[in-house]
């Protein structure tokens, strides 16, 4: 029996150690303040959890070694025990404290990553709309008036605000080395704040299953110096073609595409679902009167009453 127990322990312990040593995992290799916060949070929580595991495993091993029938006297009769008030209070209160500590950490870090990174709080963020369609990503830069497909270039040391929505199934926008992920949905806009502090190429992807070619929904996030970025924008404006409505409607048809670059955005003719264009009209009956084309119909309903 012994070698099996050993193998069993190894099968748990070895990968655990491997995981601890390997610092090159994407999530633990942050290139910006938001991802750094998350990496630190995760490492902190792993420490706490390893502590809990050590306590449980120590007790477990002790019980199994000491109270196995083969080691005990043949006539030994285990006692009848109802439980101990103090022990039970102990293993209720300690987890409560652990949960409180983790809750505080969770709330603070959630606030951190949901806002503009602290070091850049006074700067105006660069807004980029990232919208998904089956199975690609569209990046619109409203300030620069340019649009890309399946790659996004951003300047370093500047806060970026990604605004996310979808022309189809729910997707999740994720650049693990820069920030945590968030859903892109068809009827509302969600926001990711991030900043990148090291130029380089980082993998970005959709992490939420969205159909047949979901696995190919990856994009490159290229972090450039401010100067390179400005040159790139200028270059796109001068050389890339404009994006027409017809072409955009073709683009959002289901397909897997390579990169594309345009010198205008789809935001003008196909606005994102925010503000007046949001998908839900919560209790707004005057929605009808706002919209000129439905005025007649509206009058008709008035008559019915």
């Amino acid at each position: 029996m012994k070698p099996k127990w050993l193998l069993f322990s190894l099968s748990i312990a070895v990968p655990l150690l491997l995981a601890g040593c390997d610092q090159s995992l994407l999530v633990f290799d942050p290139k910006g303040p938001q991802a750094k916060t998350l990496s630190d949070t995760i490492i902190f929580s792993i420490m706490m959890m390893v502590g809990i595991l050590v306590v449980v495993y120590a007790l477990y091993t002790f019980m199994l070694v000491k109270y196995r029938a083969s080691k005990l006297d043949k006539d030994y009769e285990p006692p009848h025990e109802e439980g101990s008030k103090w022990l039970e209070i102990t293993w209720t209160v300690i987890p409560v404290i652990i949960v409180i500590v983790l809750s505080v950490v969770t709330v603070r870090t959630t606030i951190d990553v949901e806002n503009v990174p602290e070091a850049y709080a006074n700067e105006k963020p660069l807004v980029i709309y990232a919208s998904s369609s089956n199975w690609k990503w569209h990046f619109s830069y409203p300030e620069e008036g340019i649009e890309t497909v399946n790659y996004v270039n951003i300047p370093e040391d500047r806060p970026i605000e990604f605004r996310l929505y979808s022309y189809g199934p729910i997707t999740s926008f994720w650049v693990p080395q820069l920030a945590g992920q968030k859903y892109a949905m068809s009827d509302m806009v969600t926001t990711i704040h991030l900043a990148a502090e090291t130029p380089g190429s980082y993998i970005g992807k959709n992490s939420n299953f969205s159909g047949k070619d979901f696995a190919h929904m990856e994009f490159e996030t290229l972090v450039m110096t401010a100067k390179e970025y400005d040159e790139w924008v200028q270059d796109v404006k001068e050389t890339a073609p404009a994006l027409s409505e017809t072409e955009f409607n073709e683009l959002i048809e289901p397909s897997v595409l390579g990169r594309k670059t345009f010198s205008s955005t789809h935001l003008e003719f196909n606005p994102p679902p925010e503000g007046d264009n949001a998908g839900h009209h919560h209790g707004s009956e005057n929605h009808h009167s706002e919209d000129a084309s439905t005025t007649d119909e509206h009058m008709h309903h008035e008559d019915m009453k």
Binding site: V27, A35, T37, L38, S39, T41, I42, S45, I46, M49, V99, L102, V105, T106, T109, T110, D112, V113, S172, W174, P176, A179, G180, Q181, K182, S207, N208, F209
Partner: peptide
């Protein structure tokens, strides 16, 4: 418990 932490979940989700 690690997944329960909303902020960290942004990196584990899916």
């Amino acid at each position: 418990v690690m997944l329960a932490m909303a902020s960290a979940d942004y990196q584990y989700h899916n």
